[in-house]
Each structure stands twice: as structure tokens, then as C-alpha cells.
Design a protein around this nucleic acid. Structure first.
Lengths: 157, 157
DNA sequence: ATCTAAATTGTTATAGTATATCAAGCCTTA
DNA sequence: TAAGGCTTGATATACTATAACAATTTAGAT
């Protein structure tokens, strides 16, 4: 599966494929993909944008699926642990991922205008690992977040 | 000035050199390096660790330099704008930098055990720029934060 | 079938991080 | 010295996240 980047694409596929991948991953691994967890993932899948936990909670609340912060944070914790969503540290917000379970260190491009987020593939930066090695530092996790303007938002067309 | 990395070093020099560099930069550029700003910078220089805004505020308060959040956040904003400190997004915390004014995109190694932070030099990751170019994304700022264990903390000596 | 243990959810409360707003003070310079 | 701009003081509030414990559901063992 290749990322559509910032281009227009058949987004319904993103949602259904992502959901299916997660479902089958959970089944294979004996994980409980409960209604709240599914719904939170679906909400995040519905756009390639980062959403705050409280934005998600608001939607859940309207649908009667729980109205207190722990509900959404617990779902996000589950989804994050199993690689279905990632946190964007720069924004204190969350995005869906479509590589369930893979233990990758993601790297992101974040448009500061339309807030769309694209996940880049490939382990970020051998430069980091070599700098770390020089200092004897043992890297366990890496946050890489590039903020800027997506093609559409560069164009005032 | 080469970074001492995670090694022992004459830390008094870090503080005095950092302070001096900031003072002269402010003088050159007509910036007001007021007492609160200086003190906040000094507090952050005093250890190569990230500190939360409220930790800093607590120290300021004890010294009678202002006891409300805006005091410290405004100082941090000033220091950040002019490149004296950086925010560690992963920790919601701040570290001193010793390259005043340089408009660099810093990259960090953060020890999760002792919380020491080392800033790496060199623009992080040409891999990011090339991936961005492929998608037509215009990068304005990059966050790179590697979390792990420093040499000392790997050793249970 | 039923009991038990573990995981999940509900709920309340609170901790931690950050900013908006407006009033007051201070420098600078014209 | 008056005017304007930057800096600080102070109050209030918004936003993000977790602790703690009770209630419920689920899955497995007997």
C-alpha cells in the first residue's frame, strides 16, 4: 500500500482498508477490538488529519459512547500500543496509521494550514543513529515531525 | 564549541559561556535581556536536562521573581524565539541551547532514565527533505527527538 | 453451567500544561 | 514631556492527561 501523500484519492478505501487491516490484526492476535476502540479508530481514519483527544471525545459523547476523558485516552492508548494510531507530539493530537502492528518509528509531514498529516515510510535518518552511536547513546524511539505547507496550501489559487 | 555529549565536563563553563553568548547576542541585536529572562535562561543552563515550565516557575517564585505562569511562558517564548532555548515536544519541557540566534532545526537525544538531553548538530535528515520534495511539501521546521538510554544509564555499574 | 480471574468500561476527581485578557509600569525617542 | 511600544503583573480560564476505584463484561477453568 502506497501512501497517497497530499493528493486527492479514493478516501473511502483508506477507511475500509484501514478498518479491515485492524480487524484482522486483532483477530489474529486475540485483541479485543471493542466498539469504542473501533469507533475512535474510525473517527481518526475518516480524515488524514490529527485530532485532539477532546475533539474525538466530543464525537463519542454525541453518539452516547462515553463522555469522560479516560474513555478516549484508554482507546487511544490501546490503538497506539498496537500501532493503529500515532501521536503527533508537536500538536498533542493523534492520527490513524494503516500499518497495524508494525513497530515502526514513524515520521510525519504536517501542513500547518490545512492540518493534514502524511506519514512517511522508512526509518528516519541514519544520521541520527550514527550521531547516537558516536556518543554511545542507545536509541529506543524517535520522533520526527516536519511542519510546513502541503502543495495545495502553497498555492493561493 | 563542541558539545560534551553525555560525558563529564566543566559545567561551570557551559553556564558562563552560554550566558555570555546570549548577553552579547542581545546587545548586538537590541534585545532586552531582562532579569526574568536571564534568570530563566540561567536555570535552564544549570543542567543539561529538560525542565517543565512549572518547575522553572517554582524556582522563580521562591526568588520573588513572579509567581504566575505567564511570567515563565513569556520568558520561554522570548528565549525560544531567539534560539536560546528549545522545547522538547515529547516531554513538554525546555532545554537551554548554546548557539544563540542561529536558526537551526535542532535534534535531540533524551535519556529516559536520567533525563539528560544532548543536542545534536547538523541539520537532521536529508531523507526527510527528499521525501518532502517528492510530495511537494515545503518544510519549515522539523522536530527530531530520539529517546533512549545514555551511556551511563546503560551501565548498571 | 457456574465460578473465577482478568480485562474493559463507567465515573469522579484532580494533576499538569498553556494562553487570553486587561491593567499597570518602564523605557525610548521624538 | 508626551506618545508609543514593549514588558510585567494579575486574574481567569482553556486545554491536555491521568489517578483511583467501582461496576460490568468476557473468557477460560472446573
Amino acid at each position: 500500500m502506497t501512501s497517497p501523500g497530499f493528493q486527492a484519492h479514493d478516501h473511502a478505501r483508506c477507511v475500509s482498508d484501514g478498518m479491515e487491516a485492524a480487524l484482522s490484526y486483532c483477530e489474529k492476535n486475540g485483541l479485543k477490538f471493542t466498539p469504542v476502540r473501533q469507533r475512535v479508530f474510525e473517527i481518526l481514519l475518516s480524515e488524514h488529519k490529527a485530532m485532539g483527544a477532546y475533539d474525538i471525545l466530543e464525537i463519542l459523547a454525541k453518539e452516547g459512547m462515553g463522555s469522560q476523558p479516560p474513555v478516549v485516552y484508554r482507546a487511544l492508548d490501546f490503538l497506539g500500543t498496537h500501532g493503529f494510531v500515532h501521536k503527533i507530539e508537536k500538536l498533542n493530537a493523534f492520527v490513524a496509521c494503516d500499518h497495524p502492528g508494525s513497530d515502526h518509528d514513524p515520521a510525519f509531514m504536517i501542513c500547518r494550514s490545512c492540518t493534514k498529516v502524511v506519514e512517511m515510510d522508512g526509518s528516519p535518518s541514519s544520521e541520527i543513529s550514527s550521531a547516537a552511536q558516536d556518543l554511545g547513546f542507545e536509541v529506543e524511539a524517535v520522533v520526527v515531525e516536519a511542519e510546513g505547507l502541503c502543495p495545495t496550501c502553497q498555492d493561493p489559487s
